[in-house]
């Protein structure tokens, strides 16, 4: 039982990282990306390759993952600088779909659909450690950084961009640099989440980095409440424990378990959006249109 809960907690922490970083670009910079799983995947592959080719040091894997994902985040920053709103959503969807194909084809790096197997257990300074403490530490660090950045000058610049981009530009804020930095920070964080994910499952393949995953992370942010510190974490806990919790219901026939889980999951998403559009943590009075 403890092992099961630890496994669930690790996944919650990893998805918490994903949701928190996505929230950073969505909630604070107004960049609605549906390609977060791409950077999650890049980090996972990079981290897995480090563990497989060099040595399974968790910190090194996370560092490399952050650099790879953060570096390639320019793919996302570029359209973010050109367009906003629905257009950017479409661009990120396009990026997500192309990345899925690339992940399936770049076998040398990703192992294709077969994926990378037998990723060794992580170590820190030569001592084998569980992924749960690492993931919790990374999550805490990212939440801390988010809170700091949010209150600092950078955060205020971002929020001014989100609320009125042209006004921010007129006030002499460097919009392009701020957006690029925000995207890079979020994607690097997603990369770290990816590396931890790879070390946790000791197996990764492209099916964990598809559009459905991106939408799931997005749903976590929205359901929890965009632009709040704890909302995304609540969203991650809720959406991950919902199917796991449903798996314990005894009266559903074996062949329909999956469908019923999915239906409840979908219904929960829709009903929450109808009755609490600002998210669970979000302040309803501020439920503004952000697109």
């Amino acid at each position: 039982m403890t092992a099961y809960l630890a496994n669930l907690a690790t996944l919650v922490a990893i998805f918490g990282i994903l949701a928190a970083t996505l929230n950073f670009v969505v909630g604070f910079a107004g960049i609605f990306s549906v390609a977060h799983a791409v950077f999650f995947g890049l980090g996972a592959y990079a981290g897995a390759q480090v563990a497989l080719q060099l040595f399974p040091d968790a910190l090194l894997a996370c560092l490399v993952a952050a650099i790879v994902a953060g570096g390639l985040s320019l793919c996302l920053a570029l359209p973010a600088l050109r367009v906003r709103g629905e257009y950017f959503v479409a661009a990120s969807l396009g990026l997500q779909m192309m990345a899925t194909t690339l992940f399936s084809e770049a076998k040398a790096f990703t192992g294709g659909i077969g994926g990378l197997v037998a990723i060794p257990r992580p170590t820190v300074a030569g001592v084998e450690v569980g992924v749960l403490p690492l993931a919790l530490a990374a999550l805490a660090l990212i939440l801390f950084l988010t809170a700091r950045l949010q209150r600092g000058a950078f955060g205020r610049t971002l929020q001014s961009i989100r609320d009125a981009e042209s006004a921010a530009e007129a006030l002499g804020k460097n919009v392009a640099a701020a957006k690029t930095l925000a995207v890079a920070f979020a994607c690097a964080g997603a990369g770290i989440g990816g590396a931890l994910f790879a070390l946790h499952l000791s197996f990764v393949n492209v099916e964990s980095f598809t559009m459905d995953q991106s939408v799931l992370v997005m749903a976590m942010v929205i359901i929890g409440g965009t632009g709040t510190l704890w909302g995304p974490l609540i969203g991650a806990i809720l959406l991950l424990s919902l199917p796991s919790g449903l798996a314990f219901l005894p009266f559903i026939p074996a062949t329909e378990v999956g469908a019923v889980q999915q239906i409840v999951y979908g219904l929960a998403m829709t009903l929450l959006m109808i009755f609490r559009p600002a998210g669970l943590v979000g302040d309803l009075s501020k439920g503004r249109a952000t697109a």
């Binding site: 099961y4 798996a247 889980q261």
Partner: peptide, 18 residues
């Protein structure tokens, strides 16, 4: 239910085992 996806599989396997 795994939906034939590895991540779902690992979650399910952990539950079955533990």
């Amino acid at each position: 239910d795994t939906q034939a996806l590895p991540q779902q599989g690992v979650i399910g396997m952990n539950k079955l085992v533990n």
